[in-house]
């Protein structure tokens, strides 16, 4: 185990260093990624202002504010697009290099993504999280979030992260079949921001959609942890949600392994 860690650790720390190297990007990344949340925040304020109901999609106005920013916090640490890296590696031809090295390509990607996740957690996420709590207590007059919610939220986030990167690994395999994955990445991002609940809580969707989403991994990526944070899931429901996440982790892990086997076989045949 210790030896394994030694092999993979550089992937994580290099990623951290690389991120820190871009000074400008470091500060601006925080700002730019918050834009969407602020637009959403103001939009929701206007929406609740224009509505006669106090509760929309099962959330009060205050809960919605927390939802918007916690969805941002969650997505910033969870959605680490490793398919970008895969397509980079494919274009540069370094994937075959990785096949020679005595390491598992997917594992190296996930460890690198973990480095990225830690960085994002430290850089914007934790500050915004603290900001959300301060805002919540000071301006909205609500109590601090229950410690047990925070615990289950973090647990859920770790699984969300795994679901996302394992899913994204499968998605990144497309890079082996087309040279221009940029358009696909955009479509993926647009679709995911919608299906994961990042843009709008899943509870706003018509019932039929919500039923379909039950059988897809996407709502487990962002909607589930944020709802846990808001205390919307307790007792049995909470256990069920966490279990469902775990099942997705396992399922996507196996799926990824199968696809990778197929792809590398092809790679060896084609000599890419």
């Amino acid at each position: 185990m210790k030896k394994k860690l030694k092999i993979y650790l550089p992937f994580a720390s290099n990623e951290l260093k690389r991120q820190l190297a871009y000074k400008g990007a470091f500060y601006l990344f925080i700002l730019v990624s918050l834009f969407g949340s602020f637009i959403n925040y103001y939009l929701w304020m206007a929406i609740y202002g224009s509505s006669e109901n106090n509760i929309l999609g099962g959330l009060t106005k205050n809960e919605m504010i927390i939802y918007v920013f916690m969805a941002y916090v969650t997505s910033s640490i969870v959605t680490i697009s490793i398919s970008d890296w895969v397509s980079d590696d494919v274009v540069k031809g370094t994937v075959s290099m990785n096949l020679i090295k005595p390491i598992d390509y997917r594992a190296s990607l996930i460890v690198r993504a973990t480095g990225d996740m830690i960085y994002r957690f430290l850089a914007p996420a934790i500050f915004i999280w603290i900001g959300v709590e301060v805002y919540k207590v000071h301006w909205l007059g609500m109590p601090f979030t229950n410690i047990s919610y925070i615990f289950f939220y973090l647990l859920s986030c770790i699984m969300s992260f795994l679901i996302y990167v394992l899913f994204d690994f499968c998605f990144g395999m497309i890079a082996f079949f087309t040279t221009y994955i940029f358009g696909m990445l955009m479509a993926k991002e647009a679709l995911l921001s919608f299906l994961t609940g990042q843009l709008i809580p899943i509870s706003f969707f018509p019932e039929i959609f919500q039923n379909v989403f039950q059988y897809l991994p996407f709502s487990s990526m962002i909607y589930t942890p944020v709802m846990i944070y808001l205390g919307k899931y307790t007792g049995e429901t909470l256990c069920f949600m966490l279990l469902r996440q775990l099942i997705w982790v396992l399922f996507l892990y196996i799926l990824g392994s199968l696809i990778w086997k197929k792809v590398t076989k092809r790679l060896v045949v084609l000599g890419g």
Binding site: T178, T179, Y180, I181, F182, G183, M184, L185, M186, A187, E189, A190, L191
Partner: peptide, 13 residues
């Protein structure tokens, strides 16, 4: 193909 993919990406967004 690339062209169509890019177009679809922006269309979707």
């Amino acid at each position: 193909v690339d062209f169509l993919m890019g177009l679809l990406g922006f269309f979707f967004t």
